[in-house]
Design a protein around this nucleic acid. Structure first.
Lengths: 192, 192
DNA sequence: GTCTATAAAATGATAGAC
DNA sequence: GTCTATCATTTTATAGAC
């Protein structure tokens, strides 16, 4: 007797729709009316599921933020610098590929900042944490900072790039890891 | 008898203010009221200079678009592939450093698309043109496409990154060129 | 060139019926 | 859980005085 799931419930469809519209028009460029129209319901129905627009934004961002938080914590546990970077690149690319547009949104949309502020690290804190790990500490080496920013924002944006939407997950993962490792000075992996 | 410039005229200040607000809140997240308040005038004064918000957006984007258009045309003239990529990296980085937040806006803000559509290449056309040049043609090599997208969006976003705002132009230029060349497989230049 | 005043539409949000 | 109806506010945009 399997208790049948109540089909893709409205809340889930709502979040998926909101994410798509956010990625197309930006958070500020997406109105509740647009979300409602896309779902085929009225604004009031949307307000039944979320009290405010900000709540929708936060709910959309939440899974990515949680995973990103966890990734930074796990990566920092490795005693050796090389292992920390390896963990970070693999984990970050995995996250980007599984969420595609969401992580790109983190890197590019000012309207998502309020949601990111709820994270352990805060909006700019994430970049700081990532940079800190690859730079081997919070020092001021410009070269390391520039490299880290180009690598992580570049990878994040590539995940949301329409030009790469049709590339399958496995291929995109491989290519992004390769690019990330090359930039961050990690040796090429042998092809299995 | 030097004809004195009419001090930094309102139109110029307006565009500078608009660009700053666009980069902080996104184009859609910036209202004419915000721009007017920042300038210390009323909305009506803003409407004296530009008929619509869209006109402001286009005027803000115009210098960057024009230079980017020109860069792509000039780079494509080189007969050898290596020279094309060299020209593109040097020129793109120079543009990013001189305009900082503007090129980042091109890469990240959906609200700027309307303005970019006025370009010779169109919004997605730019990326296509850049990719085409580094990939040596419009073929479908995934590796080259991923590399190009990560490199150019990464460099563009780095120019607008708050973390690098205090880095001086010369240093940022050097570091971004270094990263870009490394990613795109161009040999290291000897330090002069 | 800037102002006051205003219009018309859209936005985020709520109350209450079904 | 979704609807109709409504509200206060904000937004883009215009008309006309100074």
């Amino acid at each position: 007797m399997t208790t049948v799931e109540p089909v893709a419930d409205t809340r889930t469809r709502l979040l998926a729709t909101a994410l798509r519209l956010f990625s197309e028009h930006g958070v500020e460029g997406t109105s509740l009316q647009m979300i409602a129209d896309e779902l085929g319901v009225t604004k009031a129905a949307v307000y039944y599921h979320f009290k405010t627009k900000s709540e929708i934004t936060e709910a959309v961002a939440e899974p990515g933020i949680r995973e990103l938080d966890q990734l930074v914590v796990e990566a920092a546990k490795h005693p050796r610098h090389g292992a920390r970077v390896d963990h970070l690149v693999d984990g970050f690319v995995d996250l980007v590929v599984r969420h595609r547009v969401l992580v790109a949104l983190f890197s590019s949309d000012p309207g998502i900042d309020a949601a990111l502020a709820k994270s352990v690290h805060g909006v700019e804190g994430f970049k700081q944490a990532l940079i800190s790990i690859v730079a081997g500490g919070p020092e001021l080496d410009v070269t390391a900072r520039v490299t880290a920013i180009v690598a992580f924002t570049g990878i994040a944006m590539a995940g949301g790039a329409p030009d790469l939407a049709e590339v399958d997950d496995e291929t995109l993962r491989r290519e992004l890891v390769r690019v990330g490792r090359r930039l961050l000075g990690r040796p090429r992996r042998r092809v299995c």
